[in-house]
Amino acid sequence: MEETAIVKAEGLRKTFTLSEKQRKIEKTSQKLKVAVDGLSFSAYRGEIYGLLGPNGAGKTTTLRILSTLIRPDAGDAFVGGCSVLKEGEKVRDKIGFMTSELKLEGFFTPSYLFDFFGAMHGVDKAMLAERKEELFARFGIDRFAEVKVSDLSTGMLQKVSLVVAIVHDPEVVIFDEPTNGLDVLTAKVVTDFLLELKAMGKSILLSTHIFSLVEKLCDRVGIIIDGRMAAEGTLEELCEGKSIEDKFFEIYEGIKGETV
């Protein structure tokens, strides 16, 4: 593993203003919610880095900052040396971002959408055709290439979203909860592919709250609690012989001062 940070977050802070309705739901009188609070970490080239944390810990917000969809209030992050604040377009060309929030137009076919998003990333036609053939065959999309996305099953739709996200062969693949909502077969296809991408030298950053996924995929883990980096390191360093689940709750209880 080359010790070059391909993704580097430096003191990221992000707050959101809560509406009255949101304050009622969250049972708080605070108008500002701190989603990410001075978060710093580095993910290295060719590794799978996992952001592990409970719901609302700030994982998705962090990934959205890295993908330039939202801007941090303070701090900066760098992908392949490009600042998410100052070089948004360059950053977006270096990443493939997968999240359930990003949807594909149901009217179009996987084949058309692959070409369209290829064009959005400026991929040349010959390269695009080659990647389409390879990726569609790899994920079994080729038989559904001309079927409207709205007519695809959830699993197939996830696979199409995956190949569309990496149409431009990005250096860094960012996945927000990669196996959420997937059936066991599709989830395996996705996790196998992540390992395959790693073998190809790609860097992968994923967020999850599933311990088994971390153990199976991640080289290094960052545990986020309340928007802060609670612990970071390789699985071996972090777990000290314990399971990641036990270690996580140990850290969680240490910070929150309460037993889960």
Binding site: S67, T68, L69, R92, I95, E101, L102, K103, E105
Partner: peptide, 16 residues
């Protein structure tokens, strides 16, 4: 497109 979330998918690409 904004409501369906398909516009956000385009925003993640490097298009201006």
């Amino acid at each position: 497109e904004k409501e369906r979330g398909t516009l956000a998918t385009i925003l993640v690409t490097s298009v201006r």
